Computed example of a mutant assay.
Amino acid sequence: MEPEQYYSFEAELWLYAAAKAAWHFVTVPADISHSLRFFAGSKNGFGSIRVRVRIGNSSWDTSVFPDKASGCYFLPVKAAVRKAEAISTGDRVKVELSTG
């Protein structure tokens, strides 16, 4: 079992619009993505890594997903969190992320 890791960063909330759905994400910075890739232990489908996240007063369990083009992980931010924290596309948010 890998030791738990803690990270804190600020990033912009952005929208990915597909044909039948729209998803909101935050891009995990390159240095943190690099650390996650090498030290996060077992990965799930598509190379995703299970994480615990906090934005404002909201916390939840989810996965971050690798992006081949940027080399970074993408963190999905669900609608309930966006509503509770009154955040929307283009807002900069403080993210606390942990593994383990």
Rank of each mutant, 00 (worst) to 15 (best):
V93Y: 07
N44P: 00
E85P: 08
S88M: 02
I55N: 05
E4V: 15
A17K: 15
R37I: 03
K94P: 00
F65M: 11
L97S: 06
S58H: 04
A21R: 15
D61S: 13
V95Y: 12
S8C: 12
A84S: 01
V51M: 07
A79R: 14
K43H: 08
V93H: 02
S88Q: 06
A86G: 09
S33E: 08
S8E: 15
P76H: 03
N57L: 04
H24Y: 14
T27C: 11
R92N: 10
V64L: 09
S35E: 13
Y6S: 07
P76K: 07
F65L: 05
L13W: 06
A80M: 00
S8K: 15
V81S: 11
A80G: 12
H24I: 03
V53T: 13
E10G: 05
A80I: 15
L75E: 03
V77M: 00
P3D: 03
R50Y: 02
V53Y: 09
W14M: 01
A22P: 00
F9M: 02
V64P: 14
E10R: 12
A22K: 15
I49T: 10
A21E: 13
V81P: 04
T99A: 08
Y16Q: 00
S98G: 00
S88W: 03
S70K: 10
G56F: 06
S98P: 08
D31F: 00
T99F: 11
W60G: 00
G56P: 10
F9T: 04
V53C: 09
T99C: 05
G41R: 10
G90Y: 06
K94C: 11
V95H: 11
F74N: 15
R92M: 11
T27D: 14
G100P: 01
A79V: 13
A30N: 07
E2M: 05
A19Y: 09
N57E: 09
D61R: 10
G71F: 01
D67P: 07
W60P: 04
L15S: 10
S42Q: 15
S88L: 00
G45N: 14
S35T: 11
A80V: 15
L15Q: 14
T99S: 05
S33P: 01
A18C: 03
E10N: 07
V53G: 07
R92H: 13
W14Y: 02
A21T: 06
M1W: 12
W14R: 10
Y16V: 13
I55Y: 12
V93E: 08
A30D: 04
F38N: 12
H34M: 10
R54E: 14
S63T: 09
S33F: 01
H34Q: 12
P66N: 10
Y16T: 13
E2T: 14
V28H: 02
A22G: 12
G90A: 05
Q5M: 13
S42H: 04
W14G: 06
D91Q: 11
V93M: 02
